[in-house]
């Protein structure tokens, strides 16, 4: 009886946790189909806010900017991070531990500080123009570590004898990389990209500091709408984009997992 009670309490607390995490965004998603322009009272079902969304050029531009930044960031951060993860796992060298800890730095220091430091550095020291270059560089600094640790985690589960066999059979380094190593790393590359893309697309704090004037990404646009209380219902509609994206990504992961399982 007592066990059952402990279990029941455990279940109830967990359900509260799930409810707490999901309720706000689910309610928001539902209310984005609400016809009432201001508010919290349900009127009737409509998709007119979504139509409006597509007819607001600033929003469409912001979406394109965000997509562009996220794509470039994902390509570079994944490449740098995966290579580093591979090297950190494979080779023993002086300063390996130090490098591993250093990679953690940008994600352990509070975002405001790291982003603020980049702003000062870009404007006062190296004169990198705010806007696209600054945003992309900053995003890579923050997201390459994610790829490093995703790769490090995956490396342990990879059977490296294939790579050694390829070297034994006389394949040169480049061929080995192209034919064996990269295919082996593919799941790690994929997982990193899936993590980095939404991070970059969604990031507000870092972008806010280094965006300067004119490079309004979608989160920045959203923020300005909130600040000046513009068209609250449109905000609901935009929000749904942010909610649907991770769900789509998860379906992608599930599908790819099912495929690899099927393959083996």
């Amino acid at each position: 009886m007592k066990i059952l009670n402990a279990r029941r309490i455990n279940t109830i607390v967990s359900m509260i946790g799930y409810l707490f995490v999901w309720a706000p965004i689910v309610v928001l998603a539902i209310f984005s189909f609400n016809a009432s322009a201001y508010g919290v009272k349900w009127e009737s079902l409509t998709i007119k806010w979504y139509v409006d969304l597509f007819h607001t050029p600033e929003i469409m531009q912001a979406v394109l900017r965000s997509l562009l930044i996220a794509s470039i960031t994902t390509i570079f951060a994944t490449a740098i991070g995966t290579l580093a993860g591979y090297g950190l796992y494979k080779y023993k060298f002086a300063g390996r531990r130090f490098l591993r800890m250093s990679v953690l730095l940008p994600i352990t220091v509070p975002y405001v500080i790291m982003a603020g430091a980049l702003l000062v550095y870009f404007t006062r020291i190296v004169h990198i123009p705010l806007g696209y270059p600054a945003i992309i560089i900053a995003h890579i600094s923050f997201s390459a570590p994610l790829a490093v640790f995703v790769t490090l985690g995956r490396m342990q589960r990879i059977n490296w004898s294939l790579e050694e066999a390829s070297v034994d059979l006389g394949a040169n380094t480049l061929t080995t990389w192209r034919k064996v190593t990269i295919p082996l790393l593919l799941p790690a590359i994929f997982a990193s990209a899936v993590l980095i893309f939404p991070w970059s697309f969604n990031d507000f704090t870092v972008t806010y500091f280094v965006a300067g004037v004119g490079t309004t990404t979608l989160p920045l646009y959203l923020f300005s709408m909130l600040e000046y209380s513009l068209k609250p219902v449109l905000i609901n509609a935009i929000s749904l984009i942010f909610i649907i994206m991770p769900i789509l990504l998860i379906m992608l992961i599930y599908l790819s997992k099912a495929r690899t399982k099927h393959g083996s």
Partner: peptide
């Protein structure tokens, strides 16, 4: 994985 701003806004709308 969703946008930080959206989540805070969602919470604000709810409570």
């Amino acid at each position: 994985w969703s946008c930080y701003i959206v989540r805070i806004y969602a919470l604000k709308q709810l409570v």
